[in-house]
Amino acid sequence: MAVKTKTGEHSARDVFLKYGIYFILLFIVIVLAVTSPSFRTVTNLTNVLLQVTTYGCLGIGMTFVILTGGIDVSVGGIMVCAGSVYVILSQAGMAEGLNIFMIFIVALIFGVVNGYAVAYIGMPPFLVTLATQCIGRGMSLVFTGGASYRDLGATFEFLGKTKLLGISIQIWVMLLLFAVGYFLLHKTVYGRKLTAVGGNLNAARVSGINDRLITCSAYIVMSLLCAVAAYLTMARLGSYYSAMGDGIEFMVIAAVVIGGTSMSGGSGTIIGTLAGTILIGIINNALNLFHVGAEWQDVAKGAIIFLAVLFDAIKNKAKTSD
């Protein structure tokens, strides 16, 4: 079949599919700003950013993973497991710096296992990461017995309480990570290879790209961001608790997909993920600002995920009909 020659012009549909998230985000922001005086304040903006730091960090890594055509549902398990290792080491009186290092090491181990299983053994990513999620959660219970811990240490205090230019340092960390993620994905050779592997695995392989290593690396990036997310969450809440990150993977995936990353891999941007993350943050924020009860909050969240998947499906359909 010959491919139709379209010379350059983008249809309105293409534009909507590509930039739809920004329109929606803008629309919702305007509606909320008009209807809710408490929404349109600087404090609320920083509140929203603070609330999405965990989603945001995870979203960056999830973008990498989903770009390769995979999925990682183990993020909550990695977070809680890494956090639990931190607290037991702290309890045992080890130095804080070393313990924080261990957060990253534990997460890295999970990332390597996920990546190796998916890329080199060829196990299905959803099931691999579901298994490692359970392992992570189970291990955290083994380590802590499910108890909560507070007084985590000086750097947690620092991250949790320090402000820079009136904005919590956690937000700066998240924005910095987005910048790094943007640079990695869109400006480096590595990002090229990642996009190529996700866009067309066979073509990438024929072109001499080590597709397995690239796929594996996405899961490792993801796991390291889980470590950061765990660190920030514990700092923000001032405590470790065993339900940390429970069910977070679905909101993160929703944020990434709403941000325009295709579940089938290949196309996606870090900026889109930031927008998707903020959109979800704003919706959660608005639900609280408008005193929406528990039942309707769940309905709303279900609707968000549904819309995200719907959006992706429409996009894929548009792609295949080209």
């Binding site: 809710s36 404090t43 923000r236």
Partner: peptide, 20 residues
């Protein structure tokens, strides 16, 4: 506001409620 017994949701709800 609901928290579902989750620390993170309680944190977010407190911020939002005091904002509203």
């Amino acid at each position: 506001l609901p928290t579902d017994w989750e620390s993170e949701k309680a944190y977010n709800a407190t911020l939002d409620a005091l904002q509203a």
